[in-house]
Design a binder for these strands. Sequence first.
DNA 1: AAATATATTGAATTATTATTTCAGTAATAA
DNA 2: TTATTACTGAAATAATAATTCAATATATTT
Lengths: 277, 277
Amino acid sequence: MIQNMLEQLPASERKIAEYILENPQSVLNSTVNDIGIQANTSGAAVIRLCKSLGINGFQDLKVRIAGDLVKPVEQGYRDIEPGESFFTIVQKTTSNSIQSIRDTEEMINYEELERAVHTLLPAQNVHFFGIGASGIIAKDAQQKFLRIHKNATAFTDTHLVATLIANANKDDVLFGISHSGETPEVIKVMALAKERGIKTISLTKYGQSQVASLADIKLFTAYSGEAPFRSAATSSRLSQLYLIDILFMAMATVQYEETIQTIDKTREAIRFIKQGK
Amino acid sequence: MIQNMLEQLPASERKIAEYILENPQSVLNSTVNDIGIQANTSGAAVIRLCKSLGINGFQDLKVRIAGDLVKPVEQGYRDIEPGESFFTIVQKTTSNSIQSIRDTEEMINYEELERAVHTLLPAQNVHFFGIGASGIIAKDAQQKFLRIHKNATAFTDTHLVATLIANANKDDVLFGISHSGETPEVIKVMALAKERGIKTISLTKYGQSQVASLADIKLFTAYSGEAPFRSAATSSRLSQLYLIDILFMAMATVQYEETIQTIDKTREAIRFIKQGK
DNA sequence: AAATATATTGAATTATTATTTCAGTAATAA
DNA sequence: TTATTACTGAAATAATAATTCAATATATTT
């Protein structure tokens, strides 16, 4: 998380960030001001760093660091090289996939998740929008939402979505998906929704981006550096799906009883169409 | 530590100790007084407990709990129940996701994987076909394949695919995706392809199924029993994507040099469209 | 059983530490 | 060059941990 943010941070916060990366252990036994002094800046910078990371204050930081220090290193991301055996390809793909899910888990901001759930639940209609690979995620999300009896659309066409937004109800929600967070089409549609006073949720890689900053509620997936192969195969899709799963589960749990019924109905409907019985 | 001490503790401290054992997670986000109240005693008892445990105050306790709380080894699938906290929802979704990837890994038949790669590489065209959720996987696979310069189609419409197959080249491959392996549309199209002498690859859950038995090459994902929630959220999609990733990686590796170039070209093309430069 | 000593308790107080505020400074845009 | 914005750390404030202490319970001694 810190690594990801490092570049975008102002100097004082970066000092703190670097100090933490180098001496995680000592953070656990220090106060905010200690750390500020140790890193040649102030305690305020520590608090600001926590804010920038989107976490819940210094205590939360400590708790997370403590957790990470114990964790057996799942050897990070490994790129695949030419001439590799099928066996190692599988191994690396497996560990990269798992890693990206774990990293995304760590990144979850529970308040934000909760807000997302409570925004989506009463929504009349949820419009998922993404281009290219993210369009697939949008479709997946739509399918899941329909299963729990939630009206949802998924478009990849800017014009159609623009029309939709222009005529949307105040209780609609726009859910913008863009891994980079800089897809121009998504930015435009988010801006339009904002202008129209429609609630917006973003799903982007962790860090600052235009799409995220336009959103009322920001959800993030872990971002792993880009190597030529990885960028095409992408664990990013996996983490996005994973996050959609969580959102779905959370929503479903909140309205458990209702959902069980709806799923049963859906099943029956599918069975009916399939087998005519 | 707490467990060991439990007996020797005075009542108020024991209340705290038990509370911590039952709700370790919530300790991390609470203050001393919160915990005191939650456990029907006072904040002072929390501090005393820390002393009794011989640790360095409440902060130290938090840090230790955070360390101990680190993800218990994923063990099998766990269904999500009503009224669960967001935290446990996330935990379970994470462990289910990881589990399904691990299980799918174990299921991989390397000879079959190799045959798949060597069938797909020389193919003129790969037609991915799936209905519903599997249609999304088909789209994803298509996108990936296009990136490595492999002609690919992805349809969810039976008639279109049937036409396509009817006119297909002998070097084309039909890639049928169906989690259950019993989707009637997929079965029909697979049968048609077989009749026409076109090579077929299936991606289904592990076990016997009509789709798999119609395929020349059979790829499997792990199958986890069905609980009401899980079936809707589905780790199955995750494992399917994971397998597509592996296939993609394997193919890409075999033709590494070529691929690197293609990916670069694709990037440039995307950049060109996006920014016009 | 009574008296005394000892241990335990939580409310109130104090000390510590996290967080916010704000005025000054540096960087950036106009 | 000036205006604007962003960044910074010292100081003020708020939140929270830790201590104190009087009250009460429990055990021990006579």
